[in-house]
Computed example of a mutant assay.
Amino acid sequence: MSRIDDTKEFIPVRIAVLTVSDTRDITGDKSGATLVERIETAGHILADRMIVRDERDQIASQLRTWIARDDIDVVISTGGTGLTGRDVTVEAHRDVYEKEIDAFGTVFTMVSMAKIGTSAVQSRATGGVAGGTYLFALPGSPGACRDAWDEILKLQLDYRHRPCNFVEIMPRLDEHQRRK
Rank of each mutant, 00 (worst) to 15 (best):
R3S: 14
R3Y: 09
I4W: 00
I4F: 03
D5R: 11
D6S: 15
T7S: 15
T7M: 10
K8G: 08
E9F: 12
E9L: 11
P12T: 10
V13Y: 00
R14A: 01
R14D: 00
A16Y: 12
A16H: 09
L18N: 10
T19V: 09
V20T: 14
V20E: 02
S21C: 06
D22Q: 09
R24P: 00
R24N: 08
D25Y: 06
T27R: 14
G28W: 08
G28E: 11
G28I: 03
S31Q: 02
G32L: 01
T34S: 06
V36Q: 09
R38V: 01
I39Q: 04
E40R: 10
T41L: 12
A42G: 01
A42V: 05
A42D: 14
H44A: 02
H44G: 02
I45T: 15
I45A: 02
L46H: 08
D48F: 13
D48E: 04
D48S: 09
R49N: 11
I51N: 04
V52S: 01
V52P: 00
E55P: 04
Q58A: 15
I59N: 05
A60G: 01
Q62K: 14
W66Y: 06
I67C: 13
I67T: 07
D70F: 06
D71I: 14
D71F: 12
V74K: 00
S77F: 10
S77I: 06
T78S: 12
T78K: 08
G79D: 01
G79S: 07
G79R: 04
L83Q: 06
L83G: 04
L83Y: 05
T84L: 08
R86M: 09
V88I: 08
E91Y: 12
A92T: 03
H93Q: 05
R94E: 15
V96N: 02
E98A: 07
E100P: 01
I101H: 04
A103R: 05
F104M: 08
F104V: 11
G105W: 02
T106V: 15
T109Y: 11
V111R: 10
S112I: 11
M113A: 07
A114Q: 15
K115D: 15
I116N: 09
T118I: 12
T118G: 10
T118E: 12
A120D: 13
V121P: 02
Q122M: 11
S123R: 05
R124Q: 04
A125M: 10
A125W: 01
A125Q: 10
T126R: 03
T126V: 15
T126A: 14
G127K: 05
G128R: 02
G128E: 07
A130G: 04
A130I: 10
G131S: 08
G131T: 13
T133K: 14
Y134G: 03
L135Y: 06
F136I: 10
A137C: 12
G140C: 07
P142H: 05
G143K: 10
C145G: 05
D147A: 09
A148R: 03
A148I: 00
W149L: 08
E151R: 13
I152T: 10
L155E: 13
L157E: 04
D158G: 00
Y159V: 12
H161F: 13
R162F: 01
N165R: 00
F166P: 15
I169N: 09
I169D: 11
I169L: 12
I169C: 09
P171F: 00
P171I: 04
R172T: 15
R172G: 14
D174M: 10
D174V: 10
R178T: 06
